[in-house]
Amino acid sequence: MNQTLAVADLVERLGERLELHWVGGQRQARHRTLSAVSFRARPSLVGFLNLIHPNQVQVLGDEELDWLDKLDARQRWQTLAEVCACRPAALIVAGGGEVGDDLEEQAADNQTPLLKSPRPAWELVSILQYEVTRALANRQVVHGVFMEIFTIGVLITGEPGAGKSELALELITRGHRLIADDSPEFTQMTPDIIDGSCPEALRDCLEVRGLGVLNVRRMFGDAAVKSNKFLRLILHLHPPQPGDEVSFDRLSGRSDDARVLDLDVPRILLPVLPGRNLAVIAEAAVRNFMLQLKGFDATGDFLERHGRLMGHDRQR
């Protein structure tokens, strides 16, 4: 999904907190938008006045205003023309500085939204950067049930009918927490952090075949649901295929990585077999994953012991 954020919405969200006041261009603010910038591109969403790498929101603090004041009238006029010609989404004069008539005039000519605030420029820049990055982060909806198991954010995936919701229900009764059933929404917060949350309409709901929609919060209490969580692990349920018995690695199980947004997320593949308690297996998979995060690999440890038993550890 490619996100955009209108300047009007940004001001609505932060205007009061940052004491933003309109100087001009308020009518254009609906149509001036900030658009997502990929992690690989130079971030130039919000920043101090920059003519070389024009930011989409340019903040003019005391230093920038001082610098503009030192230019002679013609240079100053040209510089301001250049700033507006880059069509910034908005210009903000910070630190309670004086908005010069020439700046106001140029912004009006170019229909550039112009705001001012008594707050210091660095404060505006850091808060705006955070909010804008969050609002414009890449998003993706993935089919599955997103849960918190032993404090780890785990996405359960699998074909329809694989038993995702039943597994979720059993995990909830065992004290784990539901974040979102069916369509959790994932947001790339930083290059290696993906946050998962629930679309408003689906919040607290879990659909189980034969029972319909259940309200987990009402049934199990507030502690059974969680609003959001970082995605760390995927458990993929799949029906056993002929030949699985022959290809499965009994010592290390089967796992790979699954791409979500711009991140490879570790994925464990669990065959669904009759008579297996999947919730217990899911819990064990998460516990083992936590050990691996701490650097302990049970299979490797066992093989090392076996090597010593065989007496050829020195040859390896």
């Binding site: 018995e245 022959v246 009994r250 076996h306 090597g307 065989m310």
Partner: peptide, 18 residues
């Protein structure tokens, strides 16, 4: 050379399980 080490044992078990 390595006798019934992990990979060999794994292949043997897979064959037997068939």
């Amino acid at each position: 050379r390595l006798g019934l080490h992990a990979r060999a044992a794994s292949r043997l078990v897979r064959t037997a399980a068939g």
